[in-house]
Simulated assay, not measured.
Amino acid sequence: MEDNRVDPTKLGTIKEIDYLRGFGVLAVIAIHTTGYFTEIPRFNTLVLINLWTDVFSQFAVPLFILISGFVLAKNYRSKFSLKTFYQKRIRSIIPQYLIFSVAYTAFNNWGVMRNNPLKANLVLLLKNIIHADASYHLWFFSIIIQLYIFYPLIIKIYTFFKQKNKAELLMAILLIVQILWMEGLHTPYFGTLKINFIAYLFYFGMGIYSGDHFEHLRNSGKSLTPIFLTISLALTLGASSFIIIGLTMGYRYTDIPAYFFIGPELIYPVLRISTFLLFFNLARNLVGQRNGLEKVISKLGNYSFGIYLIHIFFNQYAIKFLRNYTIDDTHWIFYPVVFGVTVILSYLAVRLMSYLPYSYYIIGHRSKPQSHRSIVRL
């Protein structure tokens, strides 16, 4: 029989979640900054540092998926209106996705679109919307939309296993399915398939499972932060070693054979879980603090959805500006400058936009009147 008592996680705001969003959006920007190491023609120390940073930071999207599962299960569990559920999901993500698909289609194709007939531009826009191709970071929306669609089925399956006291078995099944799917993407059989929600199903399930055990997670393991950090760094080195072998054999990153990535796929789930626990402990340590770090991470978390949507504009402009001064991805200074500029300008832009009428439908957040946030934000 399912426990029908009030879930303590429903009471008030869970500050740890906002902090985790803040850490997550910083990791996203790190990925989209350090990823330019792939354009450096020769393997060197700069490539190595950025590769390690990139592999470690890849926890970001799995973390956002986990948070989505956590918050959805917190609000929609045993009995809820499917109509209301889907209406709120559409409002929380589709307008923002469409607006930024249009904006990035124009941003990335303006030179071509100026000379194209209207019909050709509409076809390009429609293709980008359907395939989430307007910008390389919008693929996240195809994943989260699919998870929204299948959530009522997922939560029913989870509830069934939980009632049988076998929720852990379901987590194991989801992990196996996810690993097999990811391994398949690096083979000729699955290689042409686009990433979909199956690639993140375990993390979504872990979000639901974590909600059921949140108080236990919140009150235990505080002394294990150094262990989680050590494990995360060690697994980062282990997962990176396969790629390093490919680079030292003379391959460019984009030309490394797919089988070099099969080994890392076995490591990534453990690395992600360890990293989740590391940042959850860091988030717990920020609760109740009133220092500069707490304020920064909290603000970034509050505006993380909008920052995720808009940051590529500033990332690309920062890169273009530096390259005009002959500072490119082969220079050490390139990476911290691009990262810092992207974080600061993205936050300021989203903060200002939050005061606009209907800003919720653009960036998922509004500051006046009382903030109306999407139920599942990035």
Rank of each mutant, 00 (worst) to 15 (best):
E2F: 15
N4W: 08
N4M: 11
G12N: 15
R21S: 08
F23K: 03
V28W: 06
E39N: 12
F43C: 02
V47W: 10
N50V: 05
F56Y: 11
Q58D: 07
F59I: 11
V61K: 01
F64C: 00
G69F: 03
F70V: 01
A73V: 05
K74W: 02
K74D: 04
K79C: 01
K83Q: 11
T84P: 04
F85Y: 15
Q87I: 14
R89W: 06
Y97G: 04
N109C: 09
G111E: 12
R114G: 07
R114F: 11
R114T: 11
L122P: 07
L126W: 13
N128D: 13
I144L: 15
L147F: 07
Y151M: 03
Y151C: 10
P152H: 04
I155K: 02
I157Q: 04
T159P: 00
Q163M: 01
Q163F: 04
I176K: 10
W181H: 15
W181K: 10
M182T: 05
T187C: 09
P188K: 07
I195C: 04
N196W: 14
D212C: 03
F214A: 06
L235R: 10
I244C: 02
I245F: 13
G246F: 06
G250R: 14
T254A: 14
Y259W: 12
I267Y: 11
I273E: 02
I273A: 08
N281H: 07
L282W: 10
V296M: 13
Y303C: 09
F305D: 09
H331Y: 15
I333W: 09
I344T: 12
A349C: 13
S359A: 13
R373H: 10
S374V: 12
S374F: 00
